[in-house]
Amino acid sequence: MSTRIADTFAACAKAGRPALGIFTMAGDPDLETGLAILKALPAAGADMIEFGMPFSDPMADGPGVQAAGLRALRAGQTLNKTLAMVAEFRKGNDTTPVVLMGYYNPIYSHGVDAFLEDALAAGVDGLIVVDLPPEEDSELCLPALGAGLNFIRLATPTTDDQRLPMVLRNTSGFVYYVSMTGITGAAIKSHAAVGAAVKRIKGHTALPVAVGFGIKTADDAARVGRDADGVVVGTAVCNAVANSLADGRATAGTVGAVTALVRDLAAGARRARS
């Protein structure tokens, strides 16, 4: 099992700040620009990268992430290309964790064993698969853990104390707390409730807890990052890409739009506990 995720959370904790996770959709808006964005993220302040595997039917995603996935698919993105992008990224970066995030069918279609082998070879550190709850652990979670990849589980406001141990049992790397009952890009209704939920989960596990869904701005990152070990931003990143395009195509400003946003978010994360 790679130690990049554990090392990253430990280093951020030592620095007294939450880890900043940045979600970007692989191949959005095209392969070349997507790769440039990926490579630029660590220097802009991303501590961890959640790399979206585009899927035609993203049932837990709001319009921002849906559109990013569609742009990538229309530009010809495939799972093999996504894995190749990670391998290319690893040539210049051996410390920033990369967690693949998406839905199960493209992985199932690729073949679970082949996928795990290819992901490990590419330098992937973990997986987040939205439509694989603990009830389906035998599909991918257990094989992934056996192969040496972290399997990061989502916990949600509907995951009560009775269910939480089941959700945490085969989770590794960190726990991803979904801040709301809703889809990506919606708004957090109560920051106090999110903070309380993070504390509740930390009462059940020694793993770091990162919060995602609904964190859009540096201020959001600062507020949520007070209690959480990590904050994840996705929709805002996808929207930054979308807003930089001209006629649906990348412009000279696309990569810069993302890195500017990430720098701002990183500043927010750094002041979370000051």
Binding site: D131, P133, P134, R153, L154, A155, T158, T181
Partner: peptide, 10 residues
């Protein structure tokens, strides 16, 4: 099977 997001599982 039951391939849904955790939010819906409970």
């Amino acid at each position: 099977g039951r391939y849904v997001a955790e939010t819906l599982m409970p």
